[in-house]
Computed example of a mutant assay.
Amino acid sequence: MSQLVAIRGPARGIPKEGPPNLRDLDRDGLAAWLGAHLEGAPRHRAGQLFRWLHGRRVSDFSAMSDVPAADRARLAARASLRRLDVGAVLHARDGTRKLRLVTADGQSIESVLIPNDERGYTQCVSSQVGCALTCRFCATASLGFQRNLATWEIVDQVYQAQDLLARDGGEYAPRITNIVFMGMGEPLHNYNQVRRAIELLTDPDGAGLAARRITISSSGLVPAIERFAGDPLAKEVGLAISLNATTDAVRDEVMPINTRWNIAALLAAVRSVPPHRRRYVTFEYVLLAGVNDSDDDVRRLAALVGDIRCQINLIPFNPHPHAPYGRPSAARVRRFLDLCRAAGLRAYVRTPRGDDIGAACGQLALSGGQPSGHVSSDMSSAP
């Protein structure tokens, strides 16, 4: 039995030093801050600033050409527009890119851009520095848990990726069309910041992403899933659950969070989430050779989730040096898929993307990737 704790505490809190970062505020918060710190500013000033912050993604108040110079000077003295630094961009053979980003307090996080089958990209976004949970198949768990990310640090991952695509593609740059909170960290453990980030990313004056194209993943933080179920957000964005076992004994070992909230408690919480008319609940199931990939596992899986409007994403384990598991053979994966479908489950195999640069599911651990991946340093500032 693993000796890992179920949930780790952070090494530190979100940094509060220095002037506030205005990208951390939602519309109401921005208006309130301006009312308190920019005396005499007209009511429309908050809307102007919001568009500069989240639509044009400027990093200097001097770029806000329709804001009076005196107001720009006062804003520069009292607030920050700091952005994440881009430490490196790693390029995989399949077109996937991994952005290594550095925070103001020197912490590193990773975010992944995955080409869609059609035009556009899906971005995998991080919500914590490291992770509070201790899933044994996930490389991020080896980093420990440093802290939650601030709202601006979450949204700026998307803005940095948008800037990268714009620099590479010019006028005809592809767009980010989908966001999945499946990067570093447990998103629901950083609930308030993730929620506010989604509000900002879906604002038509910002990134303008469709809420139906955003998915939040959880490893089984039951109280937070129950909170999500009662939140209007649950009617807008998708939910993915990292299940990865069909018995408590196996899930306790693979995902120690199960020792706090077992499979029955987890599925009860999932059933409390209001059904989405356009989407299914997704169960992520990482296939570990000889651990959770048997024919009996399929039968138990069907019994566990067969009554839930869901789909199953089967993920052949992506090897890395931080986990003691192996990937099942292609034949074993195919049989597991066929048995799932025969049992009436809506099941798919997720093809590994970016595994040559350590960007595939479960591999984010600030690694440099394999020699076949191309690494480009990019320390240029955002526009």
Rank of each mutant, 00 (worst) to 15 (best):
G369C: 09
G130Q: 00
R346H: 14
L188W: 09
R74D: 00
G13F: 06
L364Y: 10
L38A: 11
I263M: 15
A41Y: 05
E226A: 11
D296N: 11
P274N: 08
A77R: 11
L30Q: 12
D338S: 08
R12Y: 02
G9C: 09
R82K: 04
A360W: 08
K16M: 11
T140E: 00
Q363K: 12
L288Q: 01
S367A: 08
G169W: 11
I225D: 11
G47T: 02
A73Y: 06
L201F: 05
L81I: 09
R119N: 13
L165R: 11
S294R: 06
A210H: 13
R56L: 13
G18I: 04
S242P: 13
R346I: 09
D355T: 12
F50Y: 13
H91Y: 13
N292V: 01
R196E: 08
P15G: 05
T259K: 15
Y280M: 07
V112G: 10
N292S: 02
L133E: 00
L221Q: 00
I176A: 10
R299N: 08
L101V: 04
A330R: 11
N258C: 07
A77C: 01
A302I: 05
L288D: 03
L25N: 06
H374N: 11
A141C: 05
L239C: 07
R334T: 14
R56T: 03
P275D: 09
A79C: 04
L201K: 02
L345Y: 06
R136K: 11
A36E: 07
V349A: 09
M182I: 15
R279A: 09
F137I: 00
N313H: 14
R260M: 14
R23K: 15
L75T: 04
P371S: 12
